[in-house]
């Protein structure tokens, strides 16, 4: 039997997917749910603009089918914070000018949020000197870990500064 539906938890709300299984998670979020914070850059996994979190892990929503996410918890930029109630990472992007046009920003912020969890869990990266060791959160590590998000405006150094601020304030807390 062909399957044609799925129930997803999107930012804490149950949402029904029904219909053509060709629809990507990205198009479902943007077109059906009108959650247009998540952006489409390349539609081929090459830019990271479509990054969302699925069960806490960052993925490219353009290379995933909505129907494959039955029961999954999806967090988009709208679920991270609102204009009235910004998350710390969003405030840090504002105060550090972590963007110019802003197109890559929702993806950067979702990616950074999940990245900080990966780092806290001790995941290594390609620049970790000895992969068996717990990685040190150097700028080089942060850059490598954010390399799945391109920014055509080249706001990279300010993005790293924003992420670093959040890391430091979490340490202080």
């Amino acid at each position: 039997m062909a399957t044609t539906s799925a129930t997803l938890d999107v930012n804490g709300e149950a949402r029904e997917f029904q219909g053509d299984p060709r629809q990507t998670l990205l198009d479902f979020l943007r077109l059906d749910l009108k959650l247009t914070g998540t952006k489409k850059g390349c539609d081929h996994g090459q830019c990271g603009a479509c990054t969302v979190m699925v069960n806490g892990r960052r993925i490219n929503s353009c290379l995933s089918l909505a129907i494959m996410h039955d029961g999954d918890q999806i967090t988009t930029i709208e679920g991270i914070g609102t204009p009235e109630n910004l998350a710390a990472i969003q405030r840090a992007f504002v105060s550090h000018d972590g963007f110019q046009c802003g197109y890559c920003t929702p993806g950067q912020i979702c990616s950074a949020t999940a990245m900080l969890k990966e780092l806290a869990d001790g995941w290594p990266s390609a620049v970790t000197e000895a992969v068996a060791d717990t990685p040190a959160p150097s700028d080089e590590e942060l850059r490598e870990r954010m390399s799945g998000n391109l920014c055509r405006c080249g706001a990279y150094s300010n993005i790293i500064a924003a992420i670093r601020e959040v890391m430091q304030s979490e340490e202080g807390a």
């Binding site: 996994g45 892990r57 490219n60 990616s111 990266s125 799945g148």
Partner: peptide, 29 residues
Amino acid sequence: CAADPRIRADYPLLAKAILAGASPQLRNK
């Protein structure tokens, strides 16, 4: 796979090769 402590300790080559590929988002899928 690349985050698994046993892979990192005994087969670091495998962890390094995986981490050198694609992006964190893609490796999660």
